[in-house]
C-alpha cells in the first residue's frame, strides 16, 4: 500500500509544470524515504532529478517499494482538475496498475478523485558521481529566469562565466551580443534577493538556451536557484522545494567540435 498526502497540492502541480517541458513520461520511485524521479529528456542532453522526502508530506506510507510509470501529460490533466488550495492524496495498491489522486477543498466541502493508468517504463538510472564544483552561485530564481529569457533572443547558447568579481551571462548571434553581469550582493534582511558566489577557481562554460529556459519553468518552486559549475562536468541547476525536497536539472556543457 502506498499513500501520500500533501496539504499544498499546488506544490506538486508546480513540480509537474517544471518537468513536463522536458519529459513526456517518467517513473516515480516510491519508498519509505519518499518519492524520487530520475529521467533524461528525449534528446538525452539533460537529466531531471526530483527528491521529495517522506517527512515533508503530511502523511506518508509506503509498505513496499513501488515504481509508478506515468504519462506526464495525463498527470497534468489530473492536476488541472485540482483547486489551488486543495489537499491531494495519492494512493496505489501493491502491484497496482493504476494510481488514484483525491483532491479535497480547504473547507472539505468538495472531494474529487481521479484514477489514472500507470505505464511500464523501461528507464535507465544513471549514477551521478559526487563532484567538487569550481563555483556555486546562488541567486534569485526570478532573476535567473529573466536573464536566460533575455539572452535567448541573441543566440542558441549562453556562456556562464564566474570569477571572484561576479558571474557573467553572455550570448551572441546574428543580431549582436548580450551580456549580463551580476556582482555578489548580500542582503541580510532579504536572503532570497542575495547573489552569492562560492568560488574555488574561475570557470566559463557554454550551455544551450533551450534547456536553460526549460529549467526556469521551476521558478515558482523556490525564491533562489543554485547553479553549480565545474570544467568538463554537467551544470547543476537546483531548486529547493521548501520543507519537501529539491528538483535538480543537469545539463551537459557544449564542447568545441
Amino acid at each position: 500500500m502506498f499513500e501520500a498526502r500533501l496539504v499544498n497540492s499546488s506544490t506538486f502541480r508546480k513540480v509537474l509544470d517544471a518537468i513536463k517541458d522536458l519529459l513526456n513520461e517518467a517513473s516515480f520511485d516510491c519508498s519509505e524515504n519518499g518519492i524520487q524521479l530520475q529521467a533524461m529528456d528525449s534528446s538525452h542532453v539533460s537529466l531531471v532529478s526530483l527528491n521529495l522526502k517522506s517527512d515533508g508530506f503530511d502523511k506518508f506510507r509506503c509498505d513496499r517499494n513501488l515504481t509508478m510509470g506515468m504519462n506526464l501529460t495525463s498527470l497534468g490533466k489530473v492536476f488541472k482538475c485540482s483547486g489551488a488550495d486543495d489537499t491531494v492524496t495519492m494512493k496505489a495498491q501493491d502491484y497496482a496498475d493504476t494510481v488514484t489522486f483525491m483532491f479535497e477543498s480547504k473547507k472539505q466541502d468538495k472531494i474529487s478523485d481521479y484514477e489514472m493508468k500507470l505505464m511500464n517504463l523501461d528507464q535507465e538510472h544513471l549514477g551521478i558521481p559526487d563532484t567538487e564544483f569550481s563555483c556555486i552561485i546562488k541567486m534569485p530564481s526570478i532573476e535567473f529566469a529573466r536573464i536566460i529569457r533575455d539572452l535567448s533572443q541573441f543566440g542558441e547558447s549562453i556562456v556562464i562565466s564566474c570569477t571572484k568579481e561576479g558571474v557573467k551571462f553572455s550570448a551572441q548571434g546574428d543580431i549582436g551580443t548580450g551580456n549580463v553581469k551580476l556582482a555578489q550582493t548580500h542582503n541580510f534582511d532579504k536572503e532570497e534577493e542575495s547573489v552569492t558566489i562560492d568560488l574555488q577557481e574561475p570557470v566559463a562554460l557554454t550551455f544551450a538556451c533551450q534547456y536553460l529556459n526549460s529549467f526556469t519553468k521551476a521558478t515558482p518552486l523556490s525564491n533562489q536557484v543554485k547553479l553549480s559549475m565545474c570544467e568538463n562536468v554537467p551544470l547543476v541547476v537546483e531548486y529547493q522545494i521548501p520543507e519537501l525536497g529539491h528538483l535538480r536539472f543537469y545539463l551537459a556543457p557544449k564542447i568545441e567540435e
Binding site: 533524461m40 538525452h44 537529466l47 544513471l126 558521481p129 557554454t206 543537469y250 557544449k254 564542447i255 568545441e256
Partner: peptide, 13 residues
C-alpha cells in the same frame, strides 16, 4: 559547438 549527451558524464547504474 557540439552538444554531448548527459549520459556521457554519468554511469549506468
Amino acid at each position: 559547438m557540439a552538444q554531448p549527451s548527459i549520459a556521457c558524464y554519468f554511469n549506468n547504474r
